[in-house]
Design a binder for these strands. Structure first.
Length: 501
RNA sequence: UCUCGCAUCGUAUAGUCAGGUCCAAUAUCUCAGAAUUUCAAUCUGAAGACACGGGUUCAAAUCCCGUUGCGAGAACCA
């Protein structure tokens, strides 16, 4: 960490040509933005904010821009930006143009402050840290909210102490109220008396977030700001800056935050953090998107949506105002639906890409052959019925990758050994029947086994369970005939022979 | 403390704006059952909520007031 400069790929802010706002105002093309600060990963709330921005832009034939709020130099590393980009890409959320670095636009921010100063909308404040601390202390003692008292607002600059670098503050109206017309929250009114003269430029000349956001949103031609409702009070302050510059205030939509299962703000404590963590847990990006869009947004009782449907149905007005909790059980269920509906080869490809990220994935990677990949594909229909995640899927296919003699789970061995090894005896007498088979496919194997079972006067379970455990080492698996068929005759018979008694 | 926001089954939402069709719906979770070669998937069923208190009204989940609870912001952080 530290002040690592951006790689040139992201250092585009200064050079990128920003669209002319007036042009877009004329054509009324919707332009949204996703503006995360690079914290090292794309967290789930951010992912949903990005999704809503993306959906809204697409639903209206508009654009979504990506701006990295990297003015906090200590946290803004190349890796952190890449993590953001990775997360968005995984979710399939793309943006128009190059990512814009907020830090790279500092000169423009300062330029706007000069204008504000020249128009008398802002002023230099020479109050020291001690004075500020005193103000807060006094406010607390009097049980008032801590606010800057405006002591330099109308003071003669000639009184400025020598050698003190001032901050620049905006002149917030003293009375009246600032109204935020929010698409989600409705008309929210803030008494101006509660909004103090916030700092635009620090004494070291760097712009504050509050200033940067406003200038960037304006310059980027943003028509609709969609962000977390933790910014709702900021919206009032930012409106004041917009108005001071005589700029149109974009339409705003402050969406409620996502909390963890315990109702507290989502954090590392809740296990998953970044988008890549969800990928490693075996969730499909399309399932993730579907789950996320239903957190706060609804279209009647509908649960599943394709991207095309969302583009048609999504509106900001339909977003609810109350915060929601993240529920893994529901995500899993949805993911299961998407897995069952997914193409078999697509699933194999997805598994292949996440293998390096999942626990125990190496075991599979080391044994990955073309033949096994084909077996995996053909076993997929039986496998995906039983899986909620890609991790479940590959774990269910473990028997395809295992080498003889197969490791036996305790319960599996129990089935073979029960009734003095009745299962092993069944297997022994079944082997010649299978060896005699000329063709080896699901139907023929099934016919042979069923005929044998009938001849012996047994229930199918008495035969199928021993076969399952002998061929997979487990008590649960896809249908035994599918397992036998996909293993192939030689491997199947050999595994049976290993366990025959 | 101040400003602002939120409150329907455990969870996500529908219903609230335009009061009656709501003894509140759907999905998930939980439990029971059916079917089954195992486990899933599937099917059937059960359980489970309008935060509380007033008011308006013939009628309130829906409108009004208050209370409580939860959250956000209140920085020379973003």
């Amino acid at each position: 960490m530290g002040n690592v400069p951006f790689c040139s790929q992201f250092l585009t802010a200064a050079s990128v040509a920003l669209p002319c706002p007036r042009f877009f105002a004329m054509t009324k093309q919707v332009i949204t933005r996703f503006a995360p600060s690079p914290t090292g990963f794309l967290h789930i709330g951010g992912a949903r904010t990005a999704l809503f921005n993306w959906l809204y832009a697409r639903a209206n034939g508009g654009k979504m821009l990506l701006r990295i709020e990297d003015t906090d130099r200590a946290r803004s590393t190349t890796e952190a930006v890449e993590a953001l980009v990775d997360g968005l890409s995984w979710l399939g959320l793309d943006w128009d143009g190059e990512p814009i670095s907020q830090f790279g636009r500092a000169d423009r921010h300062r330029e706007v402050v000069e204008t504000l100063l020249a128009n008398g909308k802002a002023y230099r404040c020479y109050a020291s840290q001690e004075e500020l601390a005193e103000m807060r202390e006094k406010a607390r003692a009097e049980k008032r909210p801590p606010r800057y008292d405006g002591r330099w607002r109308d003071r003669d600059p000639a009184e400025a102490p020598k050698g003190v670098a001032p901050v620049i503050r905006i002149k917030t109206p003293m009375d009246g109220e600032t109204v935020v017309n929010d698409v989600v929250q409705g008309e929210v009114r803030f008494p101006n008396a509660d909004l103090d003269d916030l700092v635009l430029l620090r004494s070291d000349g760097t712009p504050t977030y509050m200033l940067a956001v406003v200038v960037d949103d304006h310059d980027m031609g943003i028509t609709d700001i969609v962000r977390g409702d933790d910014h709702l009070t900021n919206a009032a302050r930012q409106s004041i800056i917009f108005q001071a510059m005589d700029w149109d205030v974009p339409r705003m939509a402050h969406i409620p935050l996502i909390y963890g299962p315990d109702g507290a703000k989502l954090s590392k404590r809740h296990g998953a953090i970044g988008a890549e963590a969800y990928r490693a847990m075996g969730y499909l990006p399309e399932a993730m998107r579907n789950y996320l869009v239903r957190l706060g947004w609804a279209h009647g009782d509908d649960e599943f949506f394709t991207t095309e449907e969302l583009e048609r149905l999504f509106t900001l007005e339909a977003i609810g105002k109350s915060p929601s909790r993240f529920d893994f059980a529901k995500l899993e269920n949805m993911n299961g639906h998407y897995i069952r509906a997914a193409d078999d080869h697509h699933l194999v490809a997805q598994i292949k890409t996440i293998l390096p990220e999942i626990d125990g994935g190496n075991w599979f990677s080391e044994r990955w052959t073309e033949q096994r990949e084909e077996q995996l594909s053909s076993a997929m229909p039986g496998l995906k019925e039983r899986a909620k995640t890609l991790v479940d899927l590959i774990d269910g296919a473990r028997f395809l990758f295992a080498e003889r003699p197969l490791p036996m789970e305790e319960k599996a061995a129990g089935i073979l050994d029960a009734d003095n090894g009745a299962g092993r005896a069944v297997i022994a007498s079944l082997i010649p029947v299978l060896e005699a088979l000329e063709s080896w496919n699901v139907a023929d194997v099934e016919t042979a086994v069923r005929e044998y079972t009938e001849q012996q006067g047994l229930k199918l379970g008495k035969v199928a369970q021993p076969i399952r455990t002998a061929t997979t080492g487990r008590t649960t698996s896809p249908g035994v005939f599918d397992v036998m068929a996909v293993l192939g005759k030689d491997e199947c018979v050999s595994r049976l022979r290993d366990q025959a008694g």
